[in-house]
Design a protein around this nucleic acid. Sequence first.
RNA 1: GCCCCAGUAGCCCAAUCGGCAGAGGCAGCGGACUUAAAAUCCGCCAAGUCAGGGUUCGAGUCCCUGCUGGGGCACCA
Length: 826
Amino acid sequence: MAESAYSFAAIEAKWPSVWDELGVFTPHDDGSRPRRYVLDMFPYPSGDLHMGHAEAFAMGDVVARYWRLKGFDVLHPIGWDSFGLPAENAAIKRNAHPAEWTYANIETQAASFKRYALSLDWSRRLHTSDPAYYRWTQWLFLRFYERGLAYRKNHPVNWCPKDQTVLANEQVVNGVCDRCGTPVTKKALNQWYFKITDYADRLLDDMTELEGHWPERVLAMQRNWIGRSEGAHVDFAIEATDAQGGQSERKVTVFTTRPDTLYGATFFVVAADADLAAELVTPERAGALAEYQDRVKALSEIERQNTDREKTGVFLGRYAINPLSGERLPVWAADYVLADYGTGAIMAVPAHDQRDLDFARAFGLPVRPVLDTGEEDPTASGIATAGEGTIINSGPLDGLSKTDGIAKAIEIVESAGTGSGTVNYRLRDWLLSRQRFWGAPIPIIHCDVDGEVPVPDDQLPVQLPDDLRGEQLAPKGTSPLAAAEHWVNVTCPKCGGAAKRDTDTMDTFVDSSWYYLRYLSPDYAEGPFDTEAAKSWMPVAQYVGGVEHAILHLLYSRFFTKVMKDMGLIDFDEPFASLMNQGQVLNGGKAMSKSLGNGVDLGEQLDLFGVDAVRLTMVFASPPEDDVDWADVSPSGSAKFLARAWRLGQDVLSEPGTDPAGGDRALRAVTHRTLAEASELVEAHKFNVVIAKVMELVNATRKAIDNGPGGSDPAVREAVEAVAIILSLVAPYTAEDLWGTLGHEPSVANAAWPAHDPSLLVEETVTAVVQVQGKVRDRLDVAPDIAEDALRELALASPNVKRILDGRDIRTVIVRAPKLVNIVPA
RNA sequence: GCCCCAGUAGCCCAAUCGGCAGAGGCAGCGGACUUAAAAUCCGCCAAGUCAGGGUUCGAGUCCCUGCUGGGGCACCA
């Protein structure tokens, strides 16, 4: 055979049509083999694919291809998360419809994915902006609505002045809009929410199931976000004013994690922006409160969140009664108390809470320590003592520890009927309505007679109007849909009278909270998905995506899954059994960005080095979860290695099907060890090490060909076939071509992962290390099954050992056959 | 402030249960081939594991303290 040079361009041109014809990556879905669902987080179609996609999808493909070779029926679908703001902004600028930009980008990305040779099943492709998809997003919304899990409330919400829309808490990062970086303001609006707080406990508890299968940091972030804290609700009676006369029946409940410090409460604070403040204020102080509230409203979220700020507040002229001590506590309003955490009111214990202490010092309020922690008196130091200690000045609680004090205080308030032990969460309900166009319309009709009326199922989908263009889509603080009168004005499904559609659209995270189920039956028309298909494929065996979704998408999807289980649609609690977060692709130590000018164009890299070399570089650079710095890696080195591996094929002189049994034993041992280790390594997600092992095998094979038994040895064929199969996980073009050179029919993706022969892994001799006091003093070649006693004798007989011991007595000898002996002299 | 993760050759990274610090690559150096170069093949070089303490016969690995870097949460009562 004439030697020819490795050309990635030639190989890339050769195989795609062959793969398409064979339909290699469509699952059989017939129960003939165990199923496994491998899923990459679907992309948003913002232009072409970038380096980040290249990394993430390379990782997912390793897993999908591996399980396929291992004999599983692998489902590895692709689709697009195609609703969202960028499309809308582009449409406004170009006087176009968002669909044009969106679907053009999808085609660009689809072509790039195909070039990238991912093992995807293209027959299940979906787009969340297709009416056939969002029909079921709306259907699910209505089911949530029926269950009381979708509701509207008037509430202060996060507002992005630039994007002109509300944002979920999860989308506000350090006080700015996570999309455009504009400081977020508060606005009181009537908005739709999902009652995710009802599921806080299950979202938390079911994480035990994910332990060990999801990255620990993601679990930690979700726990953090849900923010469960145990404490007590305690009722404080509000004293009537003289003007009202008599006894007020008004009570205000506070949440505290420290009921043990109840006797240390010296004042009472309600959130300045809560209705409660206005309710409690006396007429004489109402003016002062109003003035203070104006000042608070003027603050941006960033200013408000600054914890170094001076404490501010205003006395409401009112007193609350401590249910334990009977003490009168002045009631203040302040902005350091949050309206939507706990009950929006706190008992202030300045001695043992730094914020309360700062406030007390700012306004000259008393400080009373009730816990002796051995630290300096906070009254003098200005530093609250929040730790453990012994309770003092607290009547029945005196002498107890913090923990016992908490239990005792709860017992007391419970028996007095003035409180109870309780659990509080940081998690807020999910604000899902958006005042934007390019999303799934909320399927509700507002009727003057019947109020909120769900759109009947048989009228779904509520389709977006397709005649709005450019400026008509511009955000105006209300949804652009409101201006589409022909669309808005409908008849009420209940009474037939004139009514209006809800003009908000859903957060795109609603779309992506259930897409993994739609892939299972993408054309199903009787519901969002075929429940039988869900039974056979779910949960997702391996989910792959960026850690930026650690809270948002993953928490929402978990929530949806639990609701769908309660609806009886599915029978599992968690959608993603295992999660892999690939790292970012950096350049020069920094994330790629336009402003830094350090962007690397994926298309250019593919042109320069070839698809396989870029994929190999991504996978080989580091463990999947670590960042890849493109400045630190060598795609040209990857290309060189691929050529080296590929050239092996030309030196294989035996026929396909040759029995390897008589082949060179040393090379066979390397091949079989590599196969065994590669399996373990893939399953442990150490893909970079898998590559290192293939490189070793390639080196050993090269040596066998050039300086060993030569290319006609059957062990060489066996080795090169293993190279092709393992390499197919990351370098599908090169592997396929090599497989062809070896005389096999396509596709290598359908080749079975060769079972390794354990007898070939048994070494004839192993090196045992002999240590004296932990230092290596000799090495012995011994049988792998050597007995402990025999090894001990051998070690003690070693001349080196004898010389080092120099006649000293031996205290103990530790033997770990067959690898190590450690002799400890007396 | 609280929580999570990571620190191993110049660089990217390996190292089952605690058991010889080195698998692989990049860069560098040298050799073979060549008139020469490229390509290819072969070989060489390098740290004692961020610092300090502890447990142990034995620590990169376990424990404690600190440092550095990355990430998350944060007036969350």
